[in-house]
Structures are given as C-alpha cells and as structure tokens.
Amino acid sequence: MAAGGGAGNKTYSFKVVLLGEGCVGKTSLVLRYCENKFNDKHITTLQASFLTKKLNITGKRVNLAIWDTAGQERFHALGPIYYRDSNGAILVYDITDEDSFQKVKNWVKELRKMLGNEICLCIVGNKVDLEKERHVSVEEAEGYAESVGAKHYHTSAKLNKGIEELFLDLCKRMMETAQAEERAKGNGASQSTASRRGVQIVDDDPQAATAAGGCCSSA
C-alpha cells in the first residue's frame, strides 16, 4: 500500500485525499468519477468513502486510491491522519458558498506546511450547475490557486462536467512528480528497489544517528 511510484513494473500507485467542508459534494464527485452515478435511487454501491480506480495513461498503469474524508468541522483536527503519505489532494468547495472556499484556503495552508511541494493540489469549484447562485468569483478562485501552486477546476457532479479532466490532469501531474523523485533517487546513493512495505530507516541528521548509537552501545 506504500504510496509513490512503484519503480520496477511501471505501475504507479497514488493516494489521493479529498478534503473540503461538509456538503460541498466531495462524495458525489468520487461516485460520479468511479461509478458514473449521481444521486441514483437504485444504487448497488455500498459505500463511497474509499474507492479505487485503475487507469492507463500513456501506456503506464496507474492505480488510484481515493480517500474521502469527513468534512464536518469537528473532525478537522483529524486531517493529518488522513492526508499522511498522500500524493495528491483535491480540495473541494461549493461555488455558492463562500465559507467553503475559505475552508479550502485553510486546507492549502495546512497541507503546504505539513507536506511541502511534493503533494499535487487541485482546487475544485463544484456545483457549477448552480452558476446563477455563484458566490465565489472565478477570478478570485483561479488567482488564489495560481498563487499557491495549485490548479483550479470547475466541476459539476450533477451534470458530469469537468470531473474526468480533473482526475486525468491530477494523475499526469502526480506521475511527473513521481518520476522526478525517481530521478532524484537514481542520482543519489544506491537505493534498494524493494517496493514491499517494510521499515525504512531514514537518517535525518547524521549527528543524531551517531549520538543515538553511542547511547545504545554504552547501555
């Protein structure tokens, strides 16, 4: 389940986390994307909170694991447990609800602080079918997205608009990031190619390692 590109067989596994306030349409978005369903009465889907999708992009296989999160304010503090190790984040807001856009801004700040630039961010204005009731201006949203290095999309889960493009674009960007990371790894010291999950020991600070070692050997 380790996130990141599986180098050997050219199959990429990405974890994408969906963040945003409650009721902005996160769940509808995934359901539409993975099962092409919207508010269907005869639903066979049991759950819409964790879905996987297999893609083939320019001859490379991609496994997407899409993690929906609880949007209620009371669960905000649990965010880090969800977005840990994710390759991409889709930050959803409702174009008719300015407050939800504000929440997206908070998420962006938090994600950049915790995960840096390795995570691909998408800011998504959902419910464009309600264009008449728009409360978040297009310019403001796109300007903000650019300023934080994110891409902006407009979608409608109801009309199935913009969703396919959103995910496809995100996948391509995550692949680029993964490839760049691979290259960086290749240039560095020899890395074991074992993709199996296991303990990875990373030395943050060589001094720390020696100090800790000394402690153990003296004990």
């Binding site: 969906l18 409650g22 009721c23 996160k26 769940t27 359901l31 508010n39 009465k41 639903i43 889907t45 049991l46 759950q47 819409a48 909170s49 993690w67 929906d68 999160t69 609880a70 949007g71 209620q72 669960f75 649990l78």
Partner: peptide
Amino acid sequence: KITKSEPASADDFL
C-alpha cells in the same frame, strides 16, 4: 445504507 438508502460517504462513516 439501509438507513439512508444511499451509499455511505466519509461524512457518515467516521
């Protein structure tokens, strides 16, 4: 799903 007769989202699940 039985209660709401729609697939459960993360908002419901947690």
